[in-house]
């Protein structure tokens, strides 16, 4: 039994357009023995968009989330690359300057909150990082009851969890940009190498330059298909929106038939832990996951 207990920030999208992510995370955490204390009062990370408007506002909003997490005495976990990136960016500014931090904390005082720099035990990590660094791949492997053997999985990280290099913590964890491959292998899957694994899904400009956005999504999906992928897996629900929900639109832009399942990271873990696709909300996806299910059931020749 794991003794991991974490303050949990599910983000907005996992409770909005990708409810299957939130649902599968809850089930997977329970089966892994990770106790999650949901930060239900916490607010949106701003996704870099609020910072575009006013960096102080973005910093204060995230300082509030950190402070809520710190008040539990636990480390914090998110399940979204974009949350990870936007929050780390704010945290860097908050940690860089004590006068600035004091100014930001003024705005939190009324709620009885304070963000403290370097508070022992406090960290903000994506589920992917928690899985590899804190839970451990050995322990994960031990929990696997139904290896996703034969499943050819293309990793798709999402920009914010691997860039910019100076903010990702590579000094202490130099292999953070290889974790998805590690997890796929641990779960029994086969890693598919393709061009798009560390590229941008295009989501941030979907409302501003639809063509650029969908061409990115469509190109990466096409590359993964060409490399023989059965599905993609991503730790970012925003990537999921562009790769899965917009996939039919990406087909139109790229003029190519696609049809590649895109799994949330907890879903892939959940499959290996023995959950059924339906338990994990895979039926809610736009790009059909039938192929994945058939592959796992041994119905498709490898």
């Amino acid at each position: 039994m794991s003794d991991l207990k974490l303050a949990y920030w599910p983000g907005c999208v996992s409770r909005g357009f990708t409810p299957e992510l939130h649902g599968s995370m809850a089930q997977v955490a329970e089966r892994l023995g990770i106790e999650l204390v949901t930060l239900d009062r916490a607010n949106c990370c701003g996704a870099g968009v609020i910072a575009e408007h006013n960096t102080e506002l973005a910093d204060t909003l995230n300082a509030r989330t950190f402070a809520l997490a710190q008040s539990t005495g636990l480390a914090m976990m998110n399940i979204c690359s974009t949350c990870q990136g936007a929050q780390s960016e704010c945290q860097q500014r908050l940690d860089a300057d004590s006068a600035y931090r004091a100014h930001i904390n003024e705005a939190l005082a009324e709620e009885g909150l304070e963000y403290a720099k370097d508070k022992p035990g406090f960290e903000n990590k994506n589920f992917l990082w928690v899985l590899v660094e804190d839970y451990g791949l050995d322990q994960l492997k031990a929990k696997v009851t139904r290896p996703v053997a034969g499943l050819r999985v293309g990793p798709f990280y999402g920009c914010y969890i691997i860039r910019p290099r100076h903010r990702i913590g590579y000094e202490d964890h130099p292999e953070r940009d290889l974790y998805l491959e590690r997890v796929i292998e641990t779960l029994g899957g086969e890693v598919v190498e393709y061009d798009g694994a560390r590229k941008c899904c295009g989501f941030p400009v979907i409302t501003m330059n639809r063509e650029t956005s969908l061409r990115q999504a469509g190109t990466h999906i096409g590359d993964a298909l060409d490399a023989g992928a059965d599905c993609l897996v991503t730790p970012c629900p925003l990537c999921h929106l562009n790769l899965d929900m917009q996939q039919p639109e990406a087909e139109k832009i790229t003029g190519r038939e696609l049809g590649l399942a895109v799994l949330h990271l907890p879903q892939l873990v959940g499959l290996a832990l023995g959950f059924e696709p339906a338990d994990l909300g895979m039926g809610k996806h736009i790009a059909s996951t039938e192929w994945v299910e058939a592959r796992l059931a041994g119905g498709v020749p490898v």
């Binding site: 006013n54 960096t55 102080e56 910093d59 909003l61 509030r64 600035y100 705005a107």
Partner: peptide
């Protein structure tokens, strides 16, 4: 909302 009031008033860019 109070955070908004505070931050929109200062708009400090560190």
């Amino acid at each position: 909302q109070r955070i908004y009031t505070h931050a929109e008033e200062h708009r400090e860019e560190l």
